[in-house]
């Protein structure tokens, strides 16, 4: 067991998979000579050379398409978006091509590709740079999507993503890259589509992923002091969604709060809420609440931004609202 940073875990996963399979390569802006905009790919150019760690011109739509074409003829590209915000100009290649190649060719062609990069807010980078893009992509059949919260999951899910025969989107977080965590020496691929209960509790289920799992953990610690026991389900995979783990937890706690970055209209929180009300209706003692970014473009000012994002106190308030309601 080693205590390593999130970015190191991602890097180890990519290196190990590139050593394991010579069809895997990394492509994106600044991934090579600059060692990655967030140093995720540090040292990889030196290790694998320019044929497998490829710096590209600035054209996300372009290199997303390059990746899709390379995947269609048998390679396994890892395409880094400097941030997922920039994938907006590559949306067509992901939505209409990567996600549909297998289906529209009647199963003849495949597109085993990983798109990855940081997602969500990143401290004062403004509205165009703070999007939670998972809410768009998680709706698309043909794609898989993971958003790990801890280094071990980052490594295991990245390895699984690279080995998967479908297009997989790995959504990281700029604010998590420096976070350390224990990673087993032999950390292998973690199956896609499996959530993890990262804190056991009995009064409420808090569903979260990526950075919001850490916010949920802080909230749970505060609730503990008030005698409220929160269970936290870290989704890890947003598509496929592990509804069994969510439902089992809610059947135990009878209350559910979903916490995510991004807007409250539709999205992952709405999806989880639908499944819980449908599959655990009789177990619920209170409505399902969502704690999200407010329904506005992200402000730049630090105080406004903090107020815009889900914080532990908002999660605590939501949980207390449910508990009070249930106590009548």
């Amino acid at each position: 067991m080693r205590n390593i940073r999130f970015r190191e875990a991602l890097r180890e996963a990519m290196i190990e998979e590139m050593e394991r399979d010579d069809r895997v390569f990394l492509m994106g802006e600044e991934v090579g000579h600059y060692q990655g905009a967030y140093k995720v790919s540090e040292g990889m150019l030196e290790k694998f050379g320019e044929k497998r760690v490829i710096d590209t011109p600035i054209a996300e739509g372009g290199f997303a398409g390059i990746g899709v074409g390379a995947a269609m003829v048998g390679l396994r590209p890892i395409i880094e978006f400097m941030t997922w915000n920039f994938s907006a100009v590559a949306f067509d290649q992901i939505l209409n091509n990567a996600a549909k190649v297998r289906q529209m060719s009647g199963g003849q062609l495949t597109c085993p590709i990983v798109f990855r990069g940081p997602n969500g807010s990143a401290r004062q980078v403004g509205s165009q740079h703070s999007h939670s893009m998972e809410h768009f992509y998680a709706t698309v059949p043909g794609l898989k999507l993971v958003a790990p919260s801890f280094p071990a999951d980052a490594k295991g899910l990245m390895k699984a993503a690279i080995r998967d025969d479908n297009p997989v989107l790995v959504m990281e977080s700029e604010t998590l890259y420096g976070v350390k965590g224990d990673v087993p020496d032999d950390q292998d691929a973690i199956p896609l589509g499996k959530a993890a209960v990262v804190r056991e509790g009995k009064d409420v289920t808090i569903v979260a992923y990526s950075r919001m799992t850490h916010v949920a953990l802080e909230a749970a610690a505060a609730l503990e002091k008030d005698g409220i026991s929160a269970e936290i389900v870290d989704l890890r995979s947003l598509r496929p969604l592990d509804e069994d783990t969510i439902v089992a937890s809610v059947q135990k706690t009878h209350r559910c709060v979903v916490v995510h970055e991004g807007w409250p209209y539709g999205g992952v929180g709405a999806e989880v809420s639908d499944r819980v009300q449908r599959l655990a209706f009789d177990a619920l003692d209170a409505p399902i609440l969502r704690v999200t970014t407010w329904d506005v473009p992200m402000p730049y000012n630090a105080k406004l931004e903090l107020a815009c994002l889900p914080q532990p106190d908002r999660v605590v308030a939501a949980v207390k609202q449910l508990v009070r309601r249930a106590q009548g």
């Binding site: 372009g62 398409g65 390059i66 899709v68 074409g69 390379a70 003829v73 091509n97 549909k100």
Partner: peptide, 22 residues
């Protein structure tokens, strides 16, 4: 297969070509 959203097959062709040299 190709998508009728005009143009995406052109970078894909370039990507396939790059893949062949990789």
């Amino acid at each position: 297969s190709w998508s009728p959203v005009i143009g995406p097959q052109i970078p894909q062709a370039v990507g396939a070509a790059m893949a062949m040299r990789m």
